[in-house]
Structure formats: C-alpha cells, structure tokens
C-alpha cells in the first residue's frame, strides 16, 4: 500500500477537524431548536403566545435566533476555520 503524501495527510487531518466542528454545530443547533420549541412552543392558548418583531416568541427564540447564530457561525467557519489544502492552486 502506498504511503499517502504529506499534503494528503495534512488535508485529511484538517478535513477531519472541519468535519467534527460541522457535526458539533449541527448537534448544538438541534439541541437548542428542538428543546426550546418542544418546551415553549407546543399546545399553547392564544394568550400564552406573545410576539417579538412579529414572530411568535417561541419561533423567535427557538428558530429565528439560532438561525442567525448558525449564519454567524457559518461566516466564522468559512472565513477563519476552513483552510485551503497545502497543494491547492490559488484561485481568485
């Protein structure tokens, strides 16, 4: 079996780091969204629903807020964490 090149080893190592972070981000969002919405969003009478910027409050805190945080995380991940491979040609 051929030994992988150092560029391949480094690409794989960095790829795994990125993979784990993506999976953790998914898990974090899943726990937030499902636990918040299942606790605060089910079987509500009209008087139990207040609005925030027009959204029912459980939608605002349980979906819209994590959505914005997920977008912020995506920006950070792409701009700071996602690395070019060592042997990759530079593309504009």
């Amino acid at each position: 079996m051929n030994e992988p090149s150092s560029a391949e080893t480094s690409s794989l190592r960095q790829g795994r780091r990125e993979l784990w972070l993506i999976l953790l981000a998914w898990l974090g969002c899943a726990i937030w969204v499902i636990s918040y919405c299942s606790t605060n969003g089910y079987d509500l009478a009209p008087e139990e629903v207040s609005t925030l910027l027009g959204f029912p409050d459980w939608v605002f805190w349980g979906v819209v807020t994590p959505w914005m945080i997920a977008n912020a995380f995506t920006f950070w991940f792409c701009l700071r964490f996602l690395k070019n491979d060592e042997d990759e040609e530079e593309t504009p």
């Binding site: 690409s11 790829g15 990125e18 993979l19 993506i22 981000a25 998914w26 969002c29 899943a30 969204v33 919405c37 969003g41 959204f55 029912p56 939608v59 349980g62 979906v63 819209v64 994590p66 959505w67 997920a70 977008n71 995380f73 995506t74 991940f77 792409c78 996602l82 491979d85």
Partner: peptide, 23 residues
C-alpha cells in the same frame, strides 16, 4: 407557524450540505 420548526434545519443545510464533503 409550526412550519418554521419543520424547516429549521435549513439554517445548517449550506454548511452541512457543502462543507461536510465539499473539499
């Protein structure tokens, strides 16, 4: 409004769908 919860994981579809396997 429950459809906001139904579709919520689209917040991560770009990073999971493209980032998980992309590179």
């Amino acid at each position: 409004w429950v459809l906001a919860l139904w579709i919520a994981s689209y917040m991560l579809v770009p990073i999971v769908g493209m980032g998980l396997l992309g590179k």
